[in-house]
Structures are given as structure tokens and as C-alpha cells.
Design a protein around this nucleic acid. Structure first.
Lengths: 138, 138
DNA sequence: TATTGTTATACTCTATAACTATA
DNA sequence: TATAGTTATAGAGTATAACAATA
């Protein structure tokens, strides 16, 4: 039998992972993109919305709706940058960080379950390859 | 640094893979879904469109547009099943198979290039895990 | 004039529910 | 009546371009 294609395998696996992730996020009142945006803010606040859009691979115009809701939920703040008042600095609130960490823990648990039958060595190689293939694209 | 999440990595990698795959398919006059449908027909013709829809993870109503175009391009045929004339058997034409094989070869080449810096052992483990995680979902 | 964020518009994709033809 | 395929409709998601505020 021929080896299945990467695109096929990745599509299928991502579909599964997302199906398992969705209820976790919904439980926190979030959709997939909301979570991606929160995640991008973990380390540092985003100096501009355009940069945040680029970091998440989202269009800058579509990011706006997400930020509107996240702000409404009290999970992020948008504050004008005093140095250049065209920019709006987006940051996590304490509540935003709390929600984010909770989702993270639940998702990690889900992933461990998804990978439970994979031998540790294979899992390490798997994650190593994934990381390596993704990193250079930044 | 914390390990990045599966969903994040898969999304990024799939995005890259698709970006590289799109021009190959466009070169053959196909879109992503057309290719997925053709691929599903490699081994056998699909006895019903509903089964083909299920096999490709596509909605049966959305499959129709794809089949319309693939038929227009002369890549597949839809023939009423004599045993039950409600069913329409979908098969590859010779031309369909030719186009499919050409795309396949190009895509395999693209994948080899994408994975060129991955050590062979890691690559094998990577594909083994992907396959294993996807298979049980059938 | 150029840039950031926003809004508006049209376009595509998707989901649901009718419709037809066969059974 | 039930099912396979089709069509129609509305909704969500997306891309593009215009707009307002600031530089």
C-alpha cells in the first residue's frame, strides 16, 4: 500500500484535534480563534494589532471582532500607545490569563490522551519534527 | 520554554503544506477538494455519492459541485447503478487517473523537499505516528 | 502623504431544509 | 414511506477596498 499524503494525514488529525478542543474552549466561552489570540499574548502584550494579526496568522480586519469580544468578556485590554496614539496595545487581563491557563491545562490533558498509545520515543520524534517544520516559517 | 500545542503546530504545518500544494493542483486545473475526491476514487469507484462524501469528509450537498466540475473536465463519470437507479456510481476516467497520478508525483516531490532536513529516522517516526493517529478514525 | 485601526461591501464557503426520482 | 441525489436559501467566514484618526 502506498504511503498516505502529508496533507491528507494532517487534515484528518487536525480535524480530530480541533473536534476535541472545541468543547474545552466552549466551556470557557471561547472559540478557536479567541484562544489563538489569547495564546499569542502569553509572553508579552502585542505592541500593535497588526503585529498580533501577523503572529496569529489572522487577517487584521478579522482580528477586530475577536478583540471586541475578548474585551467584552474582560479577558484583554486595548490601550492606545502614548508614544504613537494610532497603535493600540493589546494585553491579557488577570482574568484573561486565568482562563487561558485553565484551557491550556485541559488541552494538554486532551493531547496526552490522544497520544496515549504512541511510544514515548515516537512521540518525541513526532513533536521534534513538527516543531522543526514549523519554526523556520516565522 | 513550554512545548507548543499540537493544534498550533498542525495548523501551521498544514497551512504551509497547502500553500505549496495549491499551485501544483492549480496547474492541473484543480482545487484542493477536487483532488481529495479524485484521490478517494483511486482504488475503486464509489458505489454512491453519499459514500464518497463520507470517505472524503465532505458534505454530500457540497460534493455535488465538485463532481459537476470534475465531470465537465472529463475526469470522472457519474453513471446510474442499474441495480438501484437512485444511486450514481462515480468513477475515474483514464484522463482523470492520468491527471491524478501527475499531481501525486508532484506532491510527493514537494513533500520530500519540505522534509529534506529531517533525519530519516525521525521522518519515519513522524509518518508512523501520523498514520497511527489517523487510522483509528475511519 | 503614510499608517493604524475600523467599517462596509461583496464573495466564498458551509449548513439546513425543501424538492425529484426512484424504490 | 423512505432514500439518493439535487437545488435553494440563509448564515458564517473571508478578502478587498474605502474611511477616520494620527503621524
Amino acid at each position: 500500500m502506498e504511503r498516505p499524503e502529508l496533507g491528507y494525514l494532517l487534515t484528518r488529525l487536525l480535524r480530530t484535534a480541533m473536534a476535541r478542543e472545541e468543547p474545552i474552549l466552549a466551556n470557557a466561552g471561547l472559540r478557536m480563534w479567541d484562544y489563538a489570540v489569547l495564546s499569542a499574548l502569553t509572553e508579552n502584550a502585542a505592541p500593535t494589532q497588526a503585529q498580533l494579526a501577523a503572529a496569529t496568522g489572522r487577517d487584521k480586519t478579522r482580528l477586530i471582532g475577536n478583540l471586541d469580544q475578548l474585551e467584552r468578556l474582560g479577558l484583554v485590554t486595548r490601550e492606545p500607545d502614548p508614544a504613537d496614539r494610532r497603535n493600540r496595545v493589546v494585553s491579557l487581563t488577570a482574568e484573561g490569563r486565568r482562563i487561558l491557563e485553565r484551557c491550556r491545562a485541559d488541552i494538554r490533558e486532551m493531547e496526552d490522551d490522544l497520544l496515549r498509545d504512541v511510544p514515548p520515543g515516537d512521540r518525541e520524534a513526532f513533536e521534534r519534527v513538527l516543531t522543526r517544520l514549523v519554526d523556520p516559517l516565522d
